[in-house]
Design a binder for these strands. Sequence first.
DNA 1: CAGTGGTCTAGACCACCGA
DNA 2: CGGTGGTCTAGACCACTGG
Lengths: 236, 236
Amino acid sequence: MGAMSLPVYVQVKAFIKAHISNGEWKPGDPVPSEAVLMQQFGLSRMTVNRALRELTSEGMVTRVQGSGTYVAELHRISSNLTIRDIQEEVVERGHVHTTRVLLTQAEKAGADVAGSLGLRTGAKVFHSILVHSENGVAIQHEDRYVNPAASPRYLETDFSLTTPTRHLLAEAPLTEASYSIEACLPTAEQATLLNIAPSEACLAMVRRTVSGPHVASLVRLVYPGSRYSFAGRFQA
Amino acid sequence: MGAMSLPVYVQVKAFIKAHISNGEWKPGDPVPSEAVLMQQFGLSRMTVNRALRELTSEGMVTRVQGSGTYVAELHRISSNLTIRDIQEEVVERGHVHTTRVLLTQAEKAGADVAGSLGLRTGAKVFHSILVHSENGVAIQHEDRYVNPAASPRYLETDFSLTTPTRHLLAEAPLTEASYSIEACLPTAEQATLLNIAPSEACLAMVRRTVSGPHVASLVRLVYPGSRYSFAGRFQA
DNA sequence: CAGTGGTCTAGACCACCGA
DNA sequence: CGGTGGTCTAGACCACTGG
């Protein structure tokens, strides 16, 4: 068959979502209490509780202990932007991923890099610069600093075979990351390496990853604006 | 007091997360079954089930019925990028939001706009162009097309008082949205309105929102690269 | 077949809110 | 105080996986 009877808690969720998305229940309005839904659907409390709990984590409703459940204030357009390993992403599109390694070396950290990595100025850091290509077309310039404490073998890695992201995820399990997406113009060198005009706008993602006690890595990824974008989707 | 004893299911989640993030359990490894965790912690099945279910929805583990629970493959850096109403965002920073309305009119849709909105070429659409400022500094150029079927009163709205986003959320409840973030150079007009150099890289967010049966709105938001970025965060 | 997860029940105790 | 949600239990039946 096609759609057999869905789990009951899913039906309860759908019931509530329907009333919200057709505008019948507006932001701030109360949603029927668990007791009412139990009666109305003839379900146990755990089941309607699960439906409401999941709607809460999806941002559709707000629950206040002792008071009630309410339609969430603004349907924020809140989508999961997933940052993926570039190689994985290219391969999944059925394309060929290649890497050009421009630099891998140990350096003394300048004040800004040291600060971001939580090290003293002048401490040893690993530095790598790569260019990633999809079917031979450059799509990402990756300039990365790595904390040796988090990944001692970083420089021994062959980045024509794996990516720094993959290596770091394996060697330094991720506990936290923060990023920002900006627009910028490429440096002269980046423009040359990416084979774009110096005046072409680029996307830059700056990312800082934490692994356990260490700040593991600080990376700036520059994408030609004409060849890359971040896309996302939101479903009510 | 400070931190009293947390709910048991939270403790189970923490137990599993700890083993994953210190690298003891690697991607693909099996996580103890519900039965084992019940014994080990002396809990009922519903409780450990909840812990594992939530870890699943957080992307930490994968569950396969009949087989078992496994550590998720790649800790994708998957963060919630929330797209907010610009006015709300500015006000929350304690700053002053102002809007300059450059255009609000009905037009005949060109082929591309009509296609995106699911209308025939030449159908009536509403078109608005605004510039949003924070403390008097222009930060966003908003060029929007609206489907009259989704928001018949769109043109009657005073956008110096509210924002198109707020108006549409109220009048056409959101059911779906998709967006992409790109880098671009401003048009000559945009550069003038935003008071930036024509060569300054900008972020552009293109967003398409669906409300029930209608595509409600198609908008292109252009931000000066020097004044705006999208930031996010990921917590394991 | 035994073991797994997916769902559901009918209770229970508690903390909290608002009248 | 009654109504609310937050948590938890000790069962249950089912569908699926794997050997």
